[in-house]
Write a protein that binds this DNA or RNA. Sequence first.
DNA 1: CTGTTAGCGCGTTCAA
DNA 2: TTGAACGCGCTAACAG
Lengths: 359, 359
Amino acid sequence: MDSTESEAPAHGPRRARVAPEEPGARHPVTLAEVAREAGTSASTASRALRGQGYVAEDVRERLLAAADRLGYVPNASAQSLKQRRSRVIGVVVSELANQFYARLAAGVEQELRAAGYQMLLVSDNSEEGAEMAAARTFLALRSPGVIMTAVGPKAPEFLNARGVVVVEVDRQQAPESCDAVVLDNVTGAHDATTHLLGLGHRRIAFIGVDTDWTSDAGRLAGYRLAHVEAGAPVDESLTLLLDPRATGSARGAIASLLEQARPTAMFTGNNILAVQAWQVVRDLELRLPTDISLVGFDDLAWMEMVTPGITVVSQPTHELGRQAALLCLRRLAQPSTERRVQLMRPQLVVRGSTGPPRS
Amino acid sequence: MDSTESEAPAHGPRRARVAPEEPGARHPVTLAEVAREAGTSASTASRALRGQGYVAEDVRERLLAAADRLGYVPNASAQSLKQRRSRVIGVVVSELANQFYARLAAGVEQELRAAGYQMLLVSDNSEEGAEMAAARTFLALRSPGVIMTAVGPKAPEFLNARGVVVVEVDRQQAPESCDAVVLDNVTGAHDATTHLLGLGHRRIAFIGVDTDWTSDAGRLAGYRLAHVEAGAPVDESLTLLLDPRATGSARGAIASLLEQARPTAMFTGNNILAVQAWQVVRDLELRLPTDISLVGFDDLAWMEMVTPGITVVSQPTHELGRQAALLCLRRLAQPSTERRVQLMRPQLVVRGSTGPPRS
DNA sequence: CTGTTAGCGCGTTCAA
DNA sequence: TTGAACGCGCTAACAG
C-alpha cells in the first residue's frame, strides 16, 4: 500500500477552466428572475414551482417553462432559512472504512435519498469529541434529524434536547430519549455460544470490546446466558475485553489468551476481531476446527471464501441502516408518536470453522 | 441475510420525547440574542465570534461568554445565503457498499473534515440520472466543490459550467475541464500481465467491464500493451467485457469463458469480478495456480487470507480519496491555477494464485 | 472600535 | 387568483 503519487501534465490543450456557456449562468438564477421572465411576481412563481397554493393553470405552465429555460435551481440555504429547517440528515458512523459501517451507511443513504433527503456523513473514529463536533454541525445546518452509531450519550442527548430527531443504530447510548434500531445481540451471541456448547466445548473464549455499548455488552451477556442455561461455568480468564481504541491491533492479546487460557473455541465480538483471531490461528499453525473452533459476529464475504468457512452470527447490516432511516423519517412526519426501539434478528450461519473439541 | 425485524416495546418509563431543558433551547439562539445578552450590536457580535475585524478585547470576551452561556450555534443557512456559498462538498460514488468506494469516501471525508468542510455523500448506483439529481442538489446547496467517480461526462460538465469546482476520482469523464486523481491503470494492468507472461502464460483472459471509463479502458490497454511488448498475440476470444449493470452476476459468463477459450490465466479488472472469478474456480474445482492462475485488481483483505493468496494490483484507495479532497481544497483556494491530473501508482503484489502454466 | 443599514433568496401572511 | 410587504439570521459597507 505504499504507492506514491506523481504529477502528470494536463493533456488537454484547453485553458485551465471552462467558462460557463449558459446564459445567466454567471450568477445562479433566482426565483425573481424566473418570475420576471414569466411576467409574474416572485410569490406566484414560488407557489407555482412548488405546487402549493393557487396558481392559474396557464400561469403555472409559463412559470415552469421559464424556470426550465433559465435552468433555475432553488437556493436551499434560502429555503432552509425561511422554513427553519433543512432537508439534510446528519449521519455519524464510527469508521467508514469498516465494511459494517459502510453498508449501514449505504442502507441509510438509499432510503433518505428516496425520500428526498440528503445524507451528511461523518466518520468519527469513535471519538466523542468528533461526534460532538458533528452534532454542532448538524445543528448549524438545522438538520431535522440525525442517525448515529454513537460512542457515548453526549451527542444524542445534546441533539435531542435541542429538538433534533435522533435515531440510534447498532447500539443505544441514550435509550431514554431516542428511537433506535439495534440487533438482538443477546440472542445472537447466545445462539453462537449454545452452538459451541452443543458441540461439546467447555472452554470457550469471548473476545470483545471493553465498552458500555449495548452491542458489545449484549454479546457478552448472551455468551454468559448460554453458559448459565447449559449449566456450564464461565471461566473469567477466557474473557478478553480489548481497549476500543486498540481493537485493530489485538493479535498479540489474542495469541497470549490462546496460549495461557487454552480455550477449545473462540467467539469474537465483531468483524475486526474475527479477522485477527483468524490470523492468529493461521500464524500459530492451528487447524480449524480440529485444534480450535472459531465463531465470528457479522458476516463478511471472506468468511465464506476461506477454508474452512467461518461460522458466524450474521446481521442484516444494510437493513439496519434502511430501518434507521425509515424510523427517522417516520418520526419527522409524526413527531409525537411513542418512542420506538426496533430489534433486528441475527442469524447463526454454521460453516466449517466449528466442530467438536479434540476430546 | 434474510433476517426479520420485530417490534420491541420501549422499555423506559419516560414519556415519548424528552423536553428540552436548556434555557432558550426552544428556538435556536440567534446572533442578535447573543448580542443583546452582551449589550452590543449584532455586527459586533458577528465580528467577535468569527474573529474578523476590530473588536475590543473585553467586548470580545463578553461576547464569547454570552455565546457560550446561551449555547449559540451559527445558522449555516443564513451564512451560506449571505456568502453565496456553503461549506458542504458534494461527493458521489458509484456504490457505497463496495469496499473500494467506501474507502475512497473515507479518505475524502477525513481531509474535508480536517479542513472544516462537510461531506454530502451520494451513492448513485452508476446511474447517470441519479448522478444528475445529485448534481442539482449540490447546486441547490451552493456547494463550492464536488468530488465524484462519475459514470458519464454530463454531471461533471454540468457542474463545471456553473462554476462548481469538480474533481474526478478513479476515472475521468470530462478530462477537458476537471481536475482529477486517477490510478495509473495502464501500468498496473501492464505489470500484472507481464508477470503472467513472464511465468510462461500465453492464453491470458481479461475480464473487465464494458464502459468507456478511463479506469477500465486503461486496464484493458495495459493488458494489450504487455502482450505487444512481449511479442505475444492477443486472442480476442479471451477478452470478456461485461455489462456494467451486470458485473455482480458474472459467474456464468466467466465459467463459459473458461470452458470455451481455455485460458491458463485470468486477469480481472476490479474487486467484484475477482470475487466471482475466484468462486468460479472453486466451483469448477480447479486449483490455483496449478490449473489456472488468477490476478485481481484492487487488494482486499480476503485476498491475502484465502489459500493460496491472490496476486493483485493493489491501489492506494484511501489515498486516492485524500488526494482528491486536497486537490479540491487547493482549487477552491486558488481557482485559477492550471488544471491538474494526479496519477497514483499501483503496485503488483505477487501471491500464490499465480504460477507457471501446466506445460 | 462600534452600530446602523441593507440585502442574500425565498416563503408566507394579508389585502386587493 | 395574484402581488406587496415582511422577515428568516447573518455579514459587509459605511458612518460615526
